[in-house]
Design a protein around this nucleic acid. Structure first.
Lengths: 159, 159
DNA sequence: CGTACCACCAAACAGATTGCCCAGTGGATC
DNA sequence: GATCCACTGGGCAATCTGTTTGGTGGTACG
């Protein structure tokens, strides 16, 4: 759960050059291969590293438009809405937030015009009272974790 | 840019068992190893697969609280705000959305109490006019792309 | 003070995988 | 008919993986 400095370096290295392999990592970090291997195993069983799945870019897939929809859910319909939205491929993420039955929904679409179709499909579901959508224009900071990892490693050291 | 059915299966397989290797994939998919290799190269140079970085779980790192902050930016301060927020490790993502100088900001914190510190640090920056924060309670659909990939592959086939 | 435990290093092994090259085949294009 | 392209199936040396072994140092604890 607490991240070591070496753990941090391992994660950063892995983020920079994912195909690197344990052996090469041990060389670059100046530690024994077994150590890296053990650390990696620990990080994975700890759940710190969830996996190494491919990072797919929706834009390159033909879905360059991203939007966030804030949904207001009718009382007691939360589970239904969740189940429904799970079946919509264009729904990339769904979160419930503080506030009266609110959900936040990350969408993608093939175009601005297509976004209309997606939104209709999403908010057309009975159980959604109201929805407001914001289109994403730019993404100055794409989803990242490295700075957080480094911070966590630093915290650990400074103790 | 357009995704083949085989491409789709490759991505899905890779998402399910990331450590699988090209050879094993070719066996499971019933195609030659060179084919899988060529497809993978193409997918990567196309940008469809951005990489294979480790998926780090902020919660396991000690940051179990997630929140979204909607920021209203003072005219012309957008660049400054971006630059500043980039330096805050707890800012995992930053997006500019439609609306008058609005940004959406994904945050994590060590606790609800700690969230206050993070928010102060974020909105304390000059150039941010107003901010409203929503704490994430549940994550019924964690960030996913597979259904979209399958959809894209299906679209391609049905043509 | 001695023991036990733990993380790490260094080395070794067989087995598997990778990157790369080649020749042949079938379909589509012009 | 000639050409291009993607795929197959095979083969090669080099490398990496998973795993085990023995040895070292530090720390916690009775």
């Amino acid at each position: 759960m607490a991240i070591d400095h070496l753990d941090g370096r391992i994660i950063v290295l892995l983020a920079e050059e994912p195909r690197i392999g344990v052996l090469e990592m041990s060389r670059r970090l100046g530690v024994a291969r077994g150590t890296v291997q053990a650390r990696l195993d620990r990080l994975q069983s700890n759940g710190v590293i969830r996996g190494f799945g491919p990072q797919v870019d929706p834009a390159a897939l033909g879905y360059p438009v991203t939007a966030f929809a804030t949904l207001q859910i009718r009382q007691g319909q939360g589970a239904d809405v969740r189940a429904y939205l799970t079946t919509v491929p264009e729904v990339l993420e769904l979160l419930t937030t503080t506030g009266s039955g609110d959900m936040l929904c990350r969408l993608v679409a093939r175009s601005n015009a297509d976004l209309q179709r997606v939104i209709d499909r999403v908010v057309g579901f009975d159980g959604i009272v109201r929805a407001s959508t914001a289109i994403v224009m730019e993404n100055p900071v794409p989803l990242r974790v490295i700075p957080l990892v480094e911070q966590a490693a630093r915290d650990r050291e400074e103790t």
